[in-house]
Each structure stands twice: as structure tokens, then as C-alpha cells.
């Protein structure tokens, strides 16, 4: 299961990714959590290889403006796309974001 976090450079989310991975050990060990840059996100939607394709895409709040278009792209492939709540993002609350991601997949 690929949980893909997307922000401008794929770097500000790296702290969050670490936190989510810690939380995933308990909640969802099979989850593969990665952070990518805005410019790379399309390939995670468009790829036909199920192993590479995102199962859910979480956007950093700073690229909230991308939600509309990415949601559109994602829906075509059945991939939920959502914005990470600013509060969880700012508090680097990995667990909450993971829970949100998991709930979106289901």
C-alpha cells in the first residue's frame, strides 16, 4: 500500500513521513509511506504498475491549490487525494495523518 505525501520539494514532509512510519509500525505495518515533490506526483498517479501507483495522496497544506486538479487526476484512477490538515501538519502529528490516510483508502 503506497501512501504518497506531496509537497513543494518533497522535503518539508520528510519529518512527517518519519513520524508516520513510526506510527505505521503499529497501525499498518504494510504501508509504504513516501514523500515526493509536486513535480513528480503525476507519475504516481499515471503509472500502470500497481506496485508503484499511489493508493492515497496527501498534499501538504501549502499546495492546497493543487487539490482540485490532482483530485481530478486521482479520481480517474480511483486514488483518493486530500489535503493534510494544517494543524496536524504543523504539529508533525504522524499518527493522525496516517489514520486519515488509512481512512481514505478504505
Amino acid at each position: 500500500m503506497n501512501i504518497v505525501l506531496c509537497c513543494a520539494a518533497g522535503m518539508s514532509t520528510s519529518l512527517l513521513v518519519e513520524r508516520m512510519k513510526t506510527a505505521a509500525k503499529e497501525l499498518s505495518p504494510e504501508a509504504n509511506i513516501i514523500a515526493v515533490a509536486e513535480s513528480e506526483i503525476l507519475q504516481y498517479i499515471e503509472t500502470d504498475d500497481r506496485n508503484d501507483r499511489a493508493d492515497v495522496i496527501m498534499l501538504g497544506p501549502q499546495i492546497r491549490y493543487k487539490l482540485k486538479s490532482l483530485k481530478h487526476e486521482g479520481e480517474a484512477k480511483g486514488i483518493p487525494v486530500e489535503v493534510i490538515p494544517s494543524v496536524d501538519y504543523g504539529m508533525i502529528n504522524g499518527k493522525k495523518v496516517l489514520e486519515l490516510a488509512l481512512s481514505l483508502i478504505k
Partner: peptide
């Protein structure tokens, strides 16, 4: 917006931390 501010503060702070720790320098296309 505050949304962006949270992201950018996180980004730049991590960047400073990363550079200070001799971490990787990212490439921009």
C-alpha cells in the same frame, strides 16, 4: 496564508538542519 507558512517554515527549518548536518543538497530541474 497560514497554510503556506506552516509548510514553508517546516521546509526552510528542515533545510537549515539538513545543510548544517552536512546532508544532501537537492537538485531542482
Amino acid at each position: 496564508s497560514v497554510d503556506s507558512l506552516i509548510g514553508i517554515v517546516l521546509h526552510i527549518s528542515c533545510m537549515v538542519d539538513r545543510l548544517k548536518g552536512g546532508g544532501v543538497v537537492v537538485k531542482y530541474c
